[in-house]
Write a protein that binds this DNA or RNA. Structure first.
Lengths: 118, 118
DNA sequence: TAGAGTGGTTACTAAAAGTATACTGGTTGC
DNA sequence: GCAACCAGTATACTTTTAGTAACCACTCTA
C-alpha cells in the first residue's frame, strides 16, 4: 500500500507494509542474535569443541556466558552436548545438522563484515 | 590444530582454532544484531518509510527504541534521514546502498526462520 | 602435596535494554 | 475549540543481560 504525502510543492509516495508480528527477521535474530551465540555456532563448524576451549576461542566470554548460550543453543537444537570421558570429565559440544543450516547465514555475515572493514 | 583427547577406550581428535579478537561474526552481529535493527533495515527495503509508520510496522517497539536504533543505523551509514517537508514536519528514512548490501544476509535469515518454523 | 586443568554452579553487581507516560510545537480536519 | 496526527524529547522506572569472582568435585603432573 502506498500513501501520499503532501509536501510544500510536491507529492511523495511512501511505501507502507504490514509486518507479521513478530516479524521473521526479528524471530530469527532471537535465535542467532544473542551475544556470542552466532560466534559459538561458527566455532563449532569444523568439529566438536570442548567447553574451556570454546571459552578461550571466544576470547573474553566468561564461563557463565558460554554456559548460558550453550544451554540455549542446545535447547533450540542447534548444538549437542556429549560427555566423551567421565574421569577426568571431558565434554564436547557439536553442531547439529539443523545448526549447520544456519552456517550459510553466518558465512554471508562474515564476508559482509570483512568486505566492509567492520 | 588438532588436539587428542584420551577417553576410556578410544582417542578422539578435537579441532582447535584461534579466533581473531573480536571475531568477524561477533563484529558483524554488533552492527546488525541489536534488537529491531535488522527489522528496521528490512522494512526499509521497498522504499522510504516515515518515523511513526516504522514504529507501527515493528509492532510494539517504542518510539524511544526506534529513535535510538535509527540513530545508530544512521551513524553507521546504513540508513539516511531526510526531512521531506518542514510544515507539517515529515521525515523519511531510507536505506543506503551500503545498507542494501546487508539485505542479502537478512534475506537468508528470513528464509531460514521461515523454513524452520521459528 | 601444591598447582593447574576439567566442567560447571552460585551469588552478587553493573550496565544495557526496554516500557510507559507525558510533553513540545506545529498542522489538519470537524 | 478540540482531537488527532507528525517527529521526536524527557523522565522515570523495571527487566534483562553481562560480567566478576569464588567455589565444587574431580584428575593429572611435577
Amino acid at each position: 500500500m502506498k500513501i501520499a504525502i503532501k509536501t510544500a510543492n510536491n507529492v511523495k509516495e511512501i511505501n507502507s507494509e504490514n509486518c507479521q508480528q513478530p516479524c521473521l527477521i526479528e524471530r530469527g535474530m532471537r535465535v542467532l542474535g544473542g551475544k556470542w551465540k552466532a560466534s559459538i555456532l561458527w566455532h563449532l563448524k569444523d568439529g566438536p569443541v570442548r567447553f574451556n576451549e570454546l571459552s578461550r576461542m571466544l576470547g573474553g566470554a566468561s564461563k557463565k556466558m558460554v554456559d548460558q548460550r550453550l544451554k540455549e543453543l542446545e535447547a533450540q537444537g542447534l548444538v549437542t552436548r556429549e560427555v566423551i570421558c567421565d574421569r577426568p570429565i571431558a565434554v564436547a559440544y557439536e553442531i547439529t545438522d539443523f545448526g549447520r543450516t544456519a552456517l550459510d547465514i553466518l558465512e554471508k555475515l562474515k564476508d559482509w563484515t570483512e568486505d566492509n572493514g567492520l
